[in-house]
Amino acid sequence: MLPGFNLSLGFTLFYLGLIVLIPLSAVFWKTSTLSWSQFWDTVTMPTALASYRLTFGTSFLAALANAFFGLIVAWVLVRYEFFGKRIVDAMVDLPFALPTAVAGITLATLYAQSGWIGRFLTPLGIHAANSQLGIFVALTFIGLPFIVRTVQPVLEDLEPELEEAATSLGANRWQVFWRVILPMLAPALLTGFALAFARALGEYGSVIFIAGNIPMKTQITPVIIMAELDMFDYAKATAIAVVMLVSSFVLLLGINILQWWTNRYNTTNLA
């Protein structure tokens, strides 16, 4: 038996408790100072409801867009050779590495009416800045690496024999993709989608600059929490935080179930 179990586990639990768990429990303490009707009125006030719709809707669409483009990016990075591939591969992680505030002001300026991209969109009647489209753009930026980095390793590990087997059984390239490759990628794709979605739900820094934070229109839920905090109404802020926490946990649970489901093919239980 190796030494250090008590020390390492003890420290781990102590640290997690101090930094994460005890502070987190304050949320429930604060919520309990509200009566049920107060709580319900807060979490269902019109601005909050609008913000849930906006946050969940744009996050979902952004994750969807990422699932599509992320799959193509991962596919191209794994399967094809082209100039600058290594740099492109490294750059995929930029949204992880670039601070959200920097991403936020950059996207806001790029898509502003006079910005590099905005000036081409404005004549078309498309306004990205201070609109839901802008939020979608920011959330797509944030979520990109999740899909690519979950799909890429699975795609790399796909044995070429599987495709050869399908081909030798008479399947054409399109059938090989739909019937063999895509089903094998599906769990990774779904996991990546859920991760990107979860990240988008809580995103703050990259969104607030481009969103304009117009109540009922472009105010995401974290901004509502922030607004309540600015008014020192901590109980209200906490109530809305509880809604978000619960949805993140449900999503986390979903991801875990998804991973369990993925492993279903791989568990060997010989009967």
């Binding site: 987190l24 906490t238 946990f249 999503l251």
Partner: peptide, 11 residues
């Protein structure tokens, strides 16, 4: 999986 805003809020 916790929004950074909520992370600040708990402190």
């Amino acid at each position: 999986s916790i929004s950074p805003v909520i992370a600040g809020l708990i402190y």
